[in-house]
Design a protein around this nucleic acid. Structure first.
Length: 107
DNA sequence: CCGATGACGCGCC
DNA sequence: GGGCGCGCCATCG
């Protein structure tokens, strides 16, 4: 486990149900620009489904990737209430900015 | 440090 | 929406 991954998982769990975020947003929240590294961390995601890695999509709204298969990811998102149109998600459902609070929301 | 990899992002057609 | 190329950064070997 790397301190970087810890960060990624921490941000990912900040995503509420019915909402999705982007790799860019997570990396940005950490103060870095390793969008790809964020994905790789989620790919490892040992805290699933504790960590809703499936609620992370591309910055343009496309699904992105998933260790269980893109189809599966869509199914989960749809089940959460996410509306996927033309294979993309509306920005209204995206969280492009996270709170600077270092506290854990799980409380 | 070097080389290779990747669930990315952006620009262009 | 789909395809292509380049740049970016952390991880792994």
């Amino acid at each position: 486990m790397t301190p970087f991954e810890e960060q990624v998982y921490g941000i990912c769990r900040r995503v509420p149900e019915g909402k999705v975020t982007t790799y860019k947003a997570i990396a940005g929240a950490l103060g870095i620009k390793a969008y790809q590294a964020v994905g790789q961390a989620l790919h490892k995601n040992p805290f699933a489904p504790n960590v809703p890695c499936h609620r992370v999509v591309n910055a343009d709204g496309s699904i992105g990737g998933f260790a269980g298969g893109i189809k599966k990811k869509m199914e989960i998102l749809r089940s959460e209430g996410i509306i996927i149109k033309a294979g993309k998600i509306s920005k209204d459902q995206m969280i492009t900015s996270f709170s600077p609070s270092p506290l854990h929301p799980r409380g």
